[in-house]
Nucleic acid binder design. Structure first.
Length: 158
DNA sequence: GCCAACGTTGGC
DNA sequence: GCCAACGTTGGC
């Protein structure tokens, strides 16, 4: 059963343009250090799941493209990199703590800004829009997915 | 830069 | 297990 997700990325690190420019439009989704987000990747994500690619912590936060999950979860290599900022001293090769999935970009879309999402009453129940919500990966219902995808393809302007 | 909200850590 | 302190997220 295909599921849908919203995944946040800072465009200053990896934006939709960077993902599209990567070989095969695919990059490993590394650096997740939150247990809830990890569990979504580890326990629920399947190849082919749809992704709303969201730009966060930037001047224009919002949905910037569509992507798909391109692998099941595997140990996030950055947890073992002693010199990297994502190193986790409690992770071992035998007992990894964090996982990644590969993500493949499908298309860049006109930005559907956070403010526009908030202005759509039919999306009131989106986890992204709940007060205090900070999760970098959130499930999206098939209904929410359809509403947003249709809006993106209708053009996000106005 | 500010600040609300949330998650994690660590002393007890 | 409680909870205060601290760190992070992320919009504004």
């Amino acid at each position: 059963m295909i599921q849908y997700w919203l995944m946040k990325s800072e465009p200053g690190e990896v934006g939709i343009d960077d993902l599209l420019a990567a070989p095969g439009s695919t990059l490993p989704w590394t650096g997740v250090r939150n247990y809830q987000a990890r569990n979504f990747m580890r326990d629920a994500m399947q190849v082919g799941d749809g992704i709303l690619f969201y730009h966060s912590s930037c001047a224009q936060p919002g949905v910037a493209g569509l992507a798909v999950v391109a692998s099941v979860a595997y140990p996030d290599p950055t947890q073992f990199d002693v010199n990297g900022k994502y190193f986790d001293p409690k992770a071992t090769l035998e007992q990894p703590r964090w996982v990644s999935v590969d993500v493949r970009a499908l298309e860049k879309t006109p930005l559907l800004a956070l403010a526009q999402l908030r202005a759509m009453p039919e999306l009131d129940d989106m986890l992204l829009l709940q007060k205090g919500s900070r999760l970098s990966i959130t499930p999206v219902s098939s209904r929410q997915w359809r509403i947003i995808r249709d809006r993106l393809h209708a053009g996000a302007g106005d």
